[in-house]
């Protein structure tokens, strides 16, 4: 006899495949190579929020109601992070990467998968404090249009500023964090000057191609949501988009081992996953 509970699990796997295939065929968003275990948790969460019983019901809704697709995209792709997440990374960046960047007259940086922009502003602050920002152009991209808009606004809940201030200081911040934003009601609005050299645009790591050559590519805690096939694709994209001696920054628990170009990189700072492309 088939155990009804475990057969339900397998049925759900089939439904998820159908949902992802449908979204890809109809809308062009490709989630088919996302890491299944974390994707599944997010899909289940959507079922709860949308008050739906099955993934098939979600499929029906997403394919027939464009507003539902927008909610789906946000729920699947947004990674909530904080400014200066992993302060040790920013310290390492200041100490190991900034001196290398000083040798360039002009610096192009790609923030791949910038989500709501917290890390982009963090980096802009670091570069400003190191006196490099004027020479930089930061391309901040995300697959989700709504998230890009939010990132562009530079507005975050004021309630988070205490935590961000702590992290800013741990990350080697040289000023008072409150210099970088103005408080308005429940929001903190980051200074427009931080945005001067940032270009926000839509780019999908799963389907789009290389669009420039960069001295630094930052992609932290984004690849963890992809399976190994998609990770390889993105590493290829990074390899094509990084100039010789360019810097690649991954998340603290991410590894370059799954890049087909692992041997083309050397570690600049091993624990913080900062690499340099040698050839």
């Amino acid at each position: 006899m088939i155990d009804p509970h475990s057969s339900k699990l397998k049925l759900e796997d089939i439904e998820i495949q159908l949902l992802l295939e449908g979204i890809y065929q109809y809308y062009g968003y490709d989630f088919r190579n996302y890491a299944m275990s974390s994707l599944k948790r997010r899909i289940r969460r959507i079922l709860e929020v949308e008050n739906l019983d099955t993934v098939s019901a979600l499929q029906d809704q997403v394919l027939h109601e464009p507003e539902s697709l927008q909610r789906f995209l946000l729920a699947i792709t947004v990674n909530v992070t904080s400014m200066f997440r992993d302060p040790a990374f920013f310290i390492a960046f200041r100490n190991q990467v900034v001196p290398l960047l000083r040798t360039y007259p002009y610096i192009r940086i790609w923030h791949a998968g910038c989500s709501q922009g917290q890390e982009v502003y963090s980096m802009a602050i670091v570069l400003q404090e190191e006196g490099l920002y004027k020479r930089c152009r930061i391309y901040a991209t995300d697959a989700n249009e709504q998230v890009i808009k939010q990132a562009k606004s530079g507005i975050y809940p004021i309630s988070l500023m205490q935590q961000y201030t702590q992290l800013y200081l741990q990350a080697g911040g040289k000023h008072s964090f409150s210099e970088y934003y103005t408080a308005a009601y429940d929001n903190a609005i980051f200074r427009a000057s931080l945005r001067d050299n940032i270009v926000f645009s839509q780019h999908n790591l799963a389907t789009d191609h290389s669009f420039n050559e960069f001295h630094v590519i930052l992609c932290r805690n984004v690849l963890i949501y992809f399976d190994q096939t998609l990770q390889k694709r993105v590493h290829q994209l990074f390899h094509e988009s990084l100039c010789k001696l360019g810097i690649l920054c991954l998340g603290r628990q991410e590894s370059i081992r799954f890049s087909p170009y692992e041997n083309d990189y050397e570690a600049v700072e091993k624990t913080e996953k900062i690499y340099r492309r040698l050839s």
Binding site: A35, M36, S37, S38, R41, R42, N79, V80, T81, N221, I224, Y225, Q228, R252, Q253
Partner: peptide, 20 residues
């Protein structure tokens, strides 16, 4: 499990996430 990451398993490998 590393600090500040969720740890998930798939049939032959681990997956990490920074979900809420």
């Amino acid at each position: 499990a590393p600090a500040d990451y969720h740890l998930l398993v798939e049939p032959d490998h681990f997956v990490l996430s920074v979900d809420e």
